[in-house]
Design a protein around this nucleic acid. Structure first.
Lengths: 204, 204
DNA sequence: CAATGTGAACAGCTTCACAGCC
DNA sequence: GGCTGTGAAGCTGTTCACATTG
């Protein structure tokens, strides 16, 4: 396939594909076809084939997709073949829940540091991590941490973000509501819990 | 404007608009034009005008949008002009964090009941709510609760969902990964934390 | 003159149809 | 015959230009 820009939507579906392929790996399946995958994931087989084809020829006509190879290749594309360290800023209830969240490890994601600005929290432990002062954010670059999760109150979000970016963070998962300005070189994903929930009543 | 189907994306932006208009209400602004709003929200003025125009004539040419009226109308469209009660299923760390989450109330959203299947947790309190047995989910209809947040482990998600739907729930905010089958009459929004985070390394 | 509302142009993603391969 | 990969068609959402209104 000649080069075409890969849609963001395709990237967003890759973790779903990876999860499915990992499961199939565990089930010792050797190959899987787009039709079976589509049933498992509740989407269209054409979509799956198109998505995977953006990255080269994953499958073999007449056979399907080799489970192990494809899993490996998706992991590689998402850069999840090595553990990705993430910093968490905000050791409130949401932050604490995220540290304990069991879903990250299967994607090779690891929360490797926790920061908070509240002096009373600094030095305390969450799981096996010690809460550090926000002043130490600048050290992230040396620790090779380039991803961060933002779980701080809205009024602190922008200033923390600025510090993170100065410290070399280039990917941000933002739980705080409202607008967060980041340079184009930084990828930001917003999860606004209240907005998401407030959409539901509309459909009642 | 003659009737046209309203894009889902437009609905998804309404909470953002509502938040902005609520803020402006607090600032005692009387009107606001799409250009100002666009700057505040970091998007395109055309987009805002198009979005709002789906619901009738909100604004006045030459003037802008009346802050209070528009806020009220968006609240009405989203059915947030009355408090919307939500059930939370899963009193783990994530569930606990959600009960305490401060962002819901400004949208008139209220977590009004908490359920868990662990007998050790039942009867305990989270904030001012008492954790109830999952067996009591069937009573949601009588309590006039039609929305639910699902924060249970993946393997319990489908069976809980089936119970919720039997109990009359018609809107679901789902935090569990993997596919959840719901009838077309039920609106489901998925928040897959691990998938979201695992997209970030791709862009590094 | 300022700003909305909207048909139309545009862009991007999804679905389709089928050629090519196993 | 079964299944992938892909150009093309179809569809949906965004951006634009401008007529219209205050």
């Amino acid at each position: 396939m000649k080069y075409r820009r890969i849609p963001d939507e395709t990237i967003q579906r890759l973790p779903m594909y990876l999860r499915a392929f990992s499961l199939l790996e565990g089930e010792k399946e050797l190959t899987v076809c787009s039709r079976q995958l589509a049933v498992r994931l509740g989407l269209n087989p054409h979509q799956i084939r198109k998505d995977l084809s953006y990255f080269g020829n994953f499958g073999r006509p007449g056979v399907g997709y080799p489970v192990q190879t494809t899993a490996r290749r998706i992991r590689h594309i998402l850069k999840l073949d090595k553990t990705q360290k993430t910093a968490l800023v905000g050791a409130g209830r949401l932050g604490t829940a995220l540290v304990a969240y069991p879903g990250f490890s299967s994607f090779n994601l690891e929360i490797a540091a926790v920061f908070d600005s509240d002096p009373k929290k600094i030095g305390k432990k969450i799981g096996h991590l010690t809460i550090e002062s926000a002043a130490r954010l600048a050290g992230l670059k040396k620790r090779n941490i380039h991803l961060a999760i933002l779980a701080v109150p809205a009024d602190a979000a922008q200033s923390v973000t600025d510090k993170l970016i100065k410290a070399g963070v280039r990917g941000l998962l933002n739980f705080s509501p409202g607008r967060l300005k980041v340079p184009a070189s930084v990828k930001k994903i917003d999860i606004d819990l209240a907005s998401q929930l407030s959409i539901l009543p509309y459909y009642l």
